[in-house]
Write a protein that binds this DNA or RNA. Structure first.
Lengths: 221, 221
DNA sequence: AAGAAAACGGAAAGACGGTTCCACTTCGCT
DNA sequence: AGCGAAGTGGAACCGTCTTTCCGTTTTCTT
């Protein structure tokens, strides 16, 4: 008779139901832990949050990279979507500014995302693919604003990406107003022409904010 | 007779000659290692470079902070001096721009300096003093440029400090041209008025540069 | 319902880096 | 030169994080 499971040579065997459930739990836990502590958070922390044993995490994701890849594919999707949305804004400058603000905020809120976008190309295959999906979207956003004559013509998509990364590191997760301030400042540098400076948010930085540029979150033990 | 060593109650006993020599070797080694790897470099790496045993480092500097303090007092002096020099520039804008460029470069070349300036206030007493010496100098530089009407009036000294820190992290030690690019961009945001954008250095960032924002130097094992 | 296979948990083993400690050396003094 | 104190080096220790392993549990199939 015909077997119920046709011999699909590419079939990676479906996971058992409990395994599938745990896989989802692990991914959710990793999302939370990596966002808070960065990509080098301990595997047992992930396991603890997921409510499974460490061994389970290792069996499902033998290398740290596997977990990272599975996790951030969707986060990259979100960034790409936001970039496309911004590029479609009828006011190109508004779209660009909104993306810069949003991107900085996203990186500040999620250390793991920041690290994975940066590390793209160094190793992880699928993460690099994600970055390659991202680049055209940002390029389009930049080109759009340049064709409208509002963004200076001598910057590229990677300039914008670097600016997002730079600003995202300022002030720690709590000090969004401070990032607003630097976003406004950089935007004043990015525009083609302006007479007076755009007013900055009136929050003056404190000494402590500076430390955040270098040590975003001290792992609380 | 009068004793050769008067009972100075604050006298911390002079070090033996070999101890003094090793102290100097350790400081020189720490300067090198911290600049390359940051403040959390291993003590045994410092000991190896200095050509002494680990125990020697620990006896002379029981806490990591002691070593940091002894080391960076002089580096802070250099920054203060540069800020004062910049404030005395007959062209205030030129002085400000030069300081921003120089500061970013100094931090990029010396991870330890970057971290110690940032961490000031969290702990280390004398490092905090250093930062407090630095702040007025930068404030003066900023005020000077503002009184000349070339720097936007709504930024403070700490904005400039944060900008230096931000830009210093871009591109890794090797990519100074890239930092030039961002310095020019931020300066265009900082000035009071400009018509056309100041031309940027024509170096386009590469994908790898982005990684440097987050992982400036991978310790080579 | 029963047997076989997959998956689980968490203890144990391993790798790694920071810190301590003490037998030995070097220095300074008489 | 000889003695005591200060200083030294690096092996051993300790805590932390990673990875493996295996006795038990859960699921799937018939």
């Amino acid at each position: 008779m015909s077997s119920v499971t046709p011999d699909d040579p590419a079939a990676p065997r479906p996971l058992r139901r409990d395994a599938e459930r745990n896989r989802a739990l692990i991914l959710a836990a990793a999302r939370e832990v990596f966002a808070a502590q960065g990509l080098d958070a301990g595997f047992d922390e992930v396991a603890r949050v997921a409510g499974v044993g460490v061994g389970t995490v290792y069996r499902r994701f033998p290398e740290r990279g596997d977990l990272v890849e599975a996790l951030f594919q969707e986060e990259v999707d979100a960034v790409v979507a936001r970039a496309q949305e911004a590029a479609a804004d009828p006011d190109p400058w508004h779209g660009l500014a909104g993306f810069l603000r949003w991107g900085a905020e996203a990186q500040a809120a999620d250390r793991g995302l920041a690290q994975v976008l940066a590390a793209a190309g160094h190793g992880h295959e699928r993460v690099a693919q994600g970055r390659d999906r991202l680049a055209p979207a940002v390029d389009a956003l930049v080109r759009h604003a340049q064709e409208a004559g509002v963004l200076r013509p001598d910057v590229g998509g990677l300039d914008l990406g670097l600016a997002v990364a730079m600003i995202g590191r300022v002030g720690g997760p709590e000090r969004a107003e401070l990032r607003e301030r630097f976003t406004a400042l950089v935007l004043d540098g990015l525009c083609v022409r302006r007479d007076a400076p755009t007013p900055l948010p009136p929050v003056l930085p404190t000494e402590e904010d500076m430390a955040q540029v270098f040590e975003p979150v001290r792992r609380p033990r």
